[in-house]
Design a protein around this nucleic acid. Structure first.
Lengths: 115, 115
DNA sequence: TCGATAGTTCTATTATTATGGAAATACTGA
DNA sequence: TCAGTATTTCCATAATAATAGAACTATCGA
């Protein structure tokens, strides 16, 4: 019997995702990975671009991976990290729903179009 | 000369907003306030609803207020807290832009409609 | 097999955060 | 002015997170 990943459901999961992105280095990492989507980027390049030490960067990536916000694949000695768009979609969708759909606190078009 | 609030700009501000909401109690608080929007709720009612002690709740509200995610108004001995939709709009708009507009990593309609 | 490069994990330190009891403050109504 | 209710602030403690040097692991090419 295959044990499925005990993916936390509901509000706790979203809270964890928010914290994972709620740090300047990690938010920058996500932005960078999104800008390189869908290929993603090699760890060293991320570190060079953002000026983060290898060890620290690895911890940040680990945290993002733990919340399923990024995916990794290996290519030789390189690890390519990329944004997990499904998770981001869940998160943004959750926030959108809370603000716009469930409670009508914000009008959709204030987010979607006309910057 | 009036000193305007030194509102942090750019990515740091969004990172701070994300952390502010990135805790289960605070995310619940925001949800509750959104569900009571635009009136908001009195502190005691929030605490009763979520089972948070007055002191702890006050700290959480302070943090949300510090990131401008909530507004307060006094009515007699009561303080009414409400969601600051402008700030939420900024935040969700930022995420939406990063994911959907700037990088086309997610298709808008996956967030906006057809759940 | 060895050496080089990429990245992680180990270990430690420092800083930040969450929590809540107790004391203080704010306001109202008598 | 006082008593009572609402909420915050003070204070302390425990828990978690960020950072990074050094040691380790993984992979490749010679």
């Amino acid at each position: 019997m295959v044990m499925t990943k005990p993916k936390l459901e509901g509000i706790t999961r979203y809270a964890d995702m928010l914290t994972a992105m709620g740090t300047e280095p990690r938010l920058r990492i996500m932005r960078l990975l999104l800008s390189a989507h869908p290929d993603g980027m090699v760890v060293g390049e991320v570190g060079a671009e953002l000026g983060i030490s290898p060890s620290t960067l690895s911890h940040h990536l680990e945290k993002l991976k733990h919340e399923d916000l990024v995916k990794v694949r290996r290519d030789g000695t390189y690890l390519w990290y990329s944004a997990n768009t499904q998770a981001l979609q869940d998160l943004v969708g959750f926030l959108y729903a809370e603000c716009c759909t469930r409670n009508n606190a914000i009008e959709p078009q204030r987010i979607v179009c006309c910057k």
